[in-house]
Simulated scan of single mutants.
Amino acid sequence: MGSVGTAGTGGEGTAEERRQLINVAYRLLGSVTEAEDAVQDAYGRWYGLPRSRRAEIRVPGAWLTTVTSRICLDLLGSARARRERYVGTWLPEPLPDRAEWGRAGGGPADGADPADLIVLDESVAMAFLVVLEAMTPAERVAFVLHDVFRYPFAEIAGVLGRTPAACKQLAASARRRVGEAPAPVSSAAGRAEVLRQVREAWEAKDIAALVGLLDPAAVLTADGGGLAGAVPRPVEGGARIARYMVAVADQAPGLELLERSVNGVPGLVARRAGVVVTVAAFDVSGGRVTRIWAVRNPEKLRPWAREGRLWSAGSRAPGGS
């Protein structure tokens, strides 16, 4: 079996090696849970090899990366059928900023939760992950391994079972998809300021203020997975979204809105009775919100459960009132 790059340290199950595998798998799958399962499966296959076979593998981390990537490729193939049966729109699992919740309540520093191991950069922004979802499984693997993790096509070919030239074409096709997606033109500080205003207008149920903060062509997509209430189809238009947001606030008395980092960029979190019920990621361009992705499926909010407990311990959340 071929092996991708020189990922990992060469040790069996080191923390840095596992971190690398989780980062690869999350970007390929958009799911912390599935990423963890894929990595566990890869380690299971490693330890299932005869000791003599393991001794022949020069860089165990590279072998594990290859196997993890192949497992993810298989999962991506079956995921399309599963997501056709999914209730409503499927969105990637949102990630909290570990440094922020650590400040909020001194969270664990051992990285035991897979979400803690994921590096929060532009390749895990919700907008980027949504574009990855539109790719074919082979495009996604070729693009993520090459453009994000810098693996050469000669080694990616071993994962996909294709020639290096074919893998290069797949990555180029994926790159075009990324290039076609509108890029947000707003600094982190600018995003944070817009979302502060959105939070204040939402709390005040000020439809006019919300309309002014939302692009007229804005789109809101919600993911409840059939386990939490959510609109089944995207809500289009700033005015319609503003009315929808106020209706949500009316139906959920006691809802707290918190300004938090979501997948490494400013976002909003809604908490009720100490429980995180919605995590919303935003795209901001020209001082207005252009896209909102609201994840309400509780199965996708597992990494945020600890945050809710820490905030309830008496700390003040950033942006909270």
Rank of each mutant, 00 (worst) to 15 (best):
M1P: 09
G2P: 15
E12G: 00
G13F: 12
G13S: 14
R19D: 05
Q20Y: 06
L21W: 03
A25C: 13
A35N: 02
E36Q: 14
E36K: 13
Q40Y: 11
Y47G: 11
G48A: 12
R51G: 13
E56R: 15
T65Y: 13
I71R: 08
S78C: 00
S78Q: 07
R85S: 13
A99S: 12
W101S: 10
P108S: 13
P108I: 12
A109R: 13
D113A: 15
P114V: 08
S123C: 03
M126L: 08
P137A: 02
E139G: 04
V141L: 06
V144Q: 08
D147I: 06
F149M: 08
R150I: 07
A157G: 11
T163A: 14
C167H: 04
A171F: 07
G179C: 09
G179N: 14
E180N: 11
A183D: 09
V194M: 09
L195W: 10
E203V: 14
A228Y: 04
R240H: 01
I241Y: 01
I241A: 02
V248A: 12
P253C: 01
G264L: 03
V269G: 01
A273S: 13
G274P: 03
A281H: 04
D283I: 00
S285A: 14
G287Q: 12
V295T: 10
P303Q: 01
R306C: 06
A317H: 09
G319A: 07
